[in-house]
Computed example of a mutant assay.
Amino acid sequence: MTGSREGPSRQASLRDSNLRLVLATVLAAEEPPSRAAVAATTGLTRSTVSRLADELVTGGLLDELDRSPAPGRGRPGTPLVAGSGVAALGMQVNPGFLAARVVDLRGRVLSEDLVPGDLSGSDPVEVLRRLGLMARTVERAAPASTRLVGRGLAVPGLVAARHGRLLSAPNLGWADVPIRRLLPRGLGGSALTVANEAELAARTVAAAAPGRPGPYTDFFYVSGEVGVGGAIVLDGRVFGGRYGWAGEVGHITVDTDGPPCSCGSRGCLEQYAGLRALRQDVERAGWALGVALAAVVNLLDIPTIVLGGHLAHAADALRPGVLREMEQRVLSSPWRPPDVRVADEDPAAGATGAAYQVFDQVLDAPASLVPQR
């Protein structure tokens, strides 16, 4: 009796696993693969891949392109690509702006809005109300055929992701904010993913598009906004630490006698390389970044540093000082010199990363969006 109950369960589990495999293989491919190419890559039979691909196409997670000429005899293959009608909403609260954008599974921005403004010391209730109105407008502006599969929000601070609560955001002046409860109905709730802005922005470097690997697999991302945040990426995946709070490089002390920081400490990197400080003294910012990032590399053995946000804009001026300090302070620099790169310019990378995080959940469980056979 037990075996008869477990049989269908095992079959469903195998189908779910194979759906994930086929979808992941298509999204990660450099060129759109045919069903035969997917079968060759995955080791699944061509009939199995064909059936699963048909299901993913029906569910909107994959699209078919025009048939390409076959290199030999036989029917030409039909290339498969990420579905163009599946999308996620990414939002971002930043001390300097609010952003909302709808991103499709191919990584394209379908609609967006970014409203600049000084939100330091703002009222979270009012700000989240405004963000909700923006989000609704952006969702309505997306193509009517778009199927929205989830929503995410990037915020600059420590987040209790499971509860959707912002614990502390010194540069906003916010503490213990129940994000999910304060967003308008339909946008918040348990389905909303909430995460740190730097962690989400790092996803846009780790992945060129949802499911497609980016140029670096192991790196430390430094997010420069009003403050300075960071994220550790290992093997293409963000490492958030035990509670999701890893990467707070902006509050590494570079000078114990330095200026007071909004976090309550003194001499934090943020006081030297945050946007306000950077405008006053680029040379000092390069020194402070080099000191802090040398400590990161020595501690974690991360081969690459990626600068984002305003640090990317100022990279040409910052890099000499950063490299000078890192070369002196990183123990392994004689054998592997520090590697400092610059992220692509995107004023709201956290919003895109929030959408990518939603897609990560879809890629982990595509069966939930595919019609049952």
Rank of each mutant, 00 (worst) to 15 (best):
V103C: 07
R108L: 10
P178F: 03
A100P: 10
A100R: 03
A169Q: 01
G157V: 02
L200M: 04
R181C: 01
L167P: 00
G211L: 05
V102E: 00
T217H: 14
V194L: 07
V194Q: 04
R147I: 06
R185I: 09
G214I: 14
P116Y: 07
P116K: 10
T217G: 13
Y216M: 09
G121V: 14
P215I: 12
G224M: 04
P213S: 12
P184C: 03
E126M: 10
Y216W: 12
A135Y: 11
E199W: 15
A161H: 10
A191D: 10
L131T: 07
M134G: 04
P124M: 08
G189T: 09
G211P: 01
R165L: 02
L98F: 01
S111E: 04
L110W: 05
A141V: 13
L119N: 05
A161R: 01
S223K: 06
V125M: 06
T193G: 14
P210V: 09
V109K: 05
A169P: 03
V159P: 04
R108C: 11
S111F: 07
E112P: 09
P178D: 05
R136Q: 11
L119A: 06
R106A: 14
L167N: 11
V205P: 04
E197L: 10
V222M: 03
A154P: 05
A206N: 09
P143D: 15
S122I: 06
A99T: 09
T137N: 15
L148V: 11
I179S: 03
G214A: 13
G224D: 01
G224Q: 06
D123I: 10
S111I: 11
A208P: 07
L166K: 04
R130G: 09
